Computed example of a mutant assay.
Amino acid sequence: MATGHTDPQRRERIITATLDLIAEEGIAGVSHRKIAARAGVPLGSMTYHFSGIEELFREAFTRFADHIVAVFDAHLASPTDRDQAREAVTDLVHVLSEGSRRDLVLTQELYTLAARQPPYRQLTQEWMRRSRIHLEKHFDPDTARQLDALIEGLTLHRALSPEPHDRALTREAITRITTTGEPNQ
């Protein structure tokens, strides 16, 4: 196997393996040894690329947050008016709630860490700030903040429900939040 110097994908494999294991076993079940085995790298390369498991967890969750922000961007970059933006947010809720269980679990693991540890709280605050930037392209800052929370809640409720609510309910909730205080058009 190539050394850390000649294997440019090694660091990325370690991060991906970390996220996969957190999604499967929870953060408490993850160790350097398990990550190295999953990534197919020597255990020693873990300390070559990361000073410790906490640095690795923060890097992995930062990468995960970047992924979710990219999903927001993909949905919210093209709408040209409020109605299209509402439809895009509706799509976003349904894509997130019907998508990867891995993403859902990783989001909840990150939130649990953020509730206990300030560095992860900072990471989630930055993630929320970046998500709201996309929403603020279409809605005022207060509405974007409310909508961001609604997206998270609707996504979680849809993902965990044995009978998820339909698209019409999602759209109605988004419309209610985004028309409050809106001038008559």
Rank of each mutant, 00 (worst) to 15 (best):
H32F: 13
A17P: 03
G29A: 07
E87I: 01
M1S: 10
F61C: 00
I133M: 12
D83A: 02
L123N: 01
H49L: 12
R82T: 04
T6P: 01
V93S: 04
D148N: 15
D91V: 05
R158T: 09
H157E: 14
G52E: 14
P164V: 08
Q185K: 09
G29Q: 02
T170E: 03
E98G: 09
A74M: 08
E163I: 11
R11K: 09
Q84K: 07
G44K: 12
E59K: 08
D91R: 06
G153Q: 10
A77P: 05
H134A: 08
F64G: 00
R11Y: 09
R63C: 09
V93W: 05
L113N: 04
V69W: 01
F50I: 08
Y120E: 06
A115C: 13
A28K: 06
S78H: 03
I27T: 11
E136M: 04
Q146E: 14
D142A: 12
A144L: 04
G153W: 12
H75M: 05
P79L: 06
A36Q: 08
I68F: 04
Q185E: 13
F57W: 10
D140N: 09
R86G: 01
R58K: 13
R101E: 13
D91G: 08
S78F: 06
K137N: 09
P79C: 05
E87G: 02
D7I: 03
R82A: 05
R11D: 06
A65W: 00
P183G: 14
G181Y: 04
L156R: 09
A65L: 02
R58C: 08
V69P: 00
G4A: 15
V89S: 02
E152C: 14
